[in-house]
C-alpha cells in the first residue's frame, strides 16, 4: 500500500489515492488534500459539506449520494459544483478522508 507524507504525517493511501484509514484524518490533512484537488482555501461552506459527509459515512458506511448531500447539508447542487469543481462527490470524499463513493447518483 502506498504511503504519503501529508501535513507532517506519513499516511497510508488506498488504490484511488484516498486515505486508507479514517483515523488518519484531521483538519490539517484536509487542508493539504484540498490543495492537491485545486481548492486553495476551505471556506465554511466547504466544511459544511466535508463534515456532513464524514457524519454520513460514520453512520452508514458509505458517502452520501449528491441528492442526499444537497438535501441535507444545506449546500445546493449549483453551489456544490462551485465549491468542488470537476467532480464534487469524489473530491469532497477525498478531502473528507473517505474512500471514493460507491453509488451512481
Amino acid at each position: 500500500m502506498a504511503t504519503k507524507e501529508i501535513a507532517g504525517k506519513t499516511i497510508e493511501l488506498d488504490a484511488d489515492g484516498n486515505l486508507a484509514k479514517l483515523t488518519d484524518w484531521n483538519e490539517a490533512v484536509a487542508k493539504e488534500l484540498s490543495k492537491e484537488e485545486g481548492i486553495e482555501q476551505l471556506t465554511d461552506r466547504h466544511w459544511a459539506v466535508i463534515n456532513y459527509m464524514r457524519k454520513e459515512f460514520t453512520e452508514k458506511g458509505d458517502a452520501p449520494s449528491i441528492r442526499k448531500l444537497t438535501k441535507e447539508s444545506g449546500v445546493d447542487t449549483k453551489e456544490l459544483y462551485q465549491l468542488f469543481p470537476k467532480g464534487p462527490a469524489k473530491k469532497a470524499a477525498r478531502i473528507a478522508g473517505l474512500p471514493k463513493p460507491k453509488g451512481c447518483i
Binding site: 441528492r67 442526499k68 447542487t77 449549483k78 459544483y81 453509488g103 447518483i105
Partner: peptide, 17 residues
Amino acid sequence: LDIPPVREFIEMIHDAG
C-alpha cells in the same frame, strides 16, 4: 437507490452544469 423522479433529476443535472 436515491434516484430522483424525472423532473427533479433534470433540475439536478442542469444545476450541475
